[in-house]
């Protein structure tokens, strides 16, 4: 226990000088506890806001698997289908397991999808559970997240987006465990992977 504390302290101290003059938002703003594993998405920093207007750091998602999709709320055709698929994945879990999973929807249209717009969207789709988060981030961080996940989105002249439709599974460390590439692949595959990544015991609180 002491070792972990010391390690954490050392990490914090080493991070300090970098924090002092850092203009790049590309590293975790504070390193409490262990560093993320090498391929964890939680190296990605940034000030994110949930649809409940709460600040969020991605690394706070550590400890439970995450089902993540990117969309935008003004999307008429495909995004509702993506959302339905994510809901279907949740329904595919035993009810006890649902609380052990986080469902994160990130908008790649942060200009229009403010936290309150996201809140309306969540409500419209009947999503109230606390394990769901609709995230708003700066366009810089949203584009980084998209690039790291291979999610492509491109605005067209009308202000709509052409985009890809992946649903990503992150394991408890925040590493990409699986990616469903499109809407065609049966949901059973990502669901099986999710079940295999559920934490075995209750995740410790941060």
């Amino acid at each position: 226990m002491k070792k972990i504390f010391l390690l954490g302290l050392v990490c914090l101290l080493t991070a300090m000088p970098a924090l002092a003059e850092d203009h790049s938002h590309h590293h975790p703003t504070s390193l409490q506890g262990e560093k993320p594993t090498g391929k964890s998405l939680y190296w990605l920093g940034g000030q994110w806001k949930t649809h409940q207007n709460q600040k969020l750091e991605l690394k706070s998602l550590k400890g439970k698997p995450v089902v993540l999709a990117m969309l935008y709320t003004s999307c008429k055709a495909v995004c509702p289908l993506i959302l339905e698929d994510v809901k279907a994945i949740e329904k595919g879990l035993a009810s006890a397991d649902r609380a052990k999973t986080q469902f994160v929807i990130v908008s790649f249209d942060p200009e229009r999808d403010t936290p309150s717009v996201l809140a309306d969207y969540a409500q419209k789709h009947g999503i109230r559970a606390s394990n769901w988060k609709f995230l708003h981030g700066t366009s810089k961080h949203v584009s980084e997240l998209g690039a790291l996940l291979g999610v492509r989105f491109q605005p067209n002249a009308q202000g709509d987006f052409i985009h890809s439709n992946q649903i990503t599974l992150l394991n408890v460390e925040g590493e990409v465990a699986y990616q469903r590439p499109d809407l065609k692949e049966p949901l059973t595959i990502i669901l099986e992977k999710l079940k295999a990544n559920l934490p075995v015991s209750h995740p410790h609180q941060h």
Partner: peptide, 18 residues
């Protein structure tokens, strides 16, 4: 380039931008 991964999208986003 900043948006290298936006290269070549399909017309139909339903296809999933393969």
């Amino acid at each position: 380039v900043d948006d290298f991964n936006q290269v070549i999208m399909t017309n139909d986003s339903r296809e999933g931008a393969e």
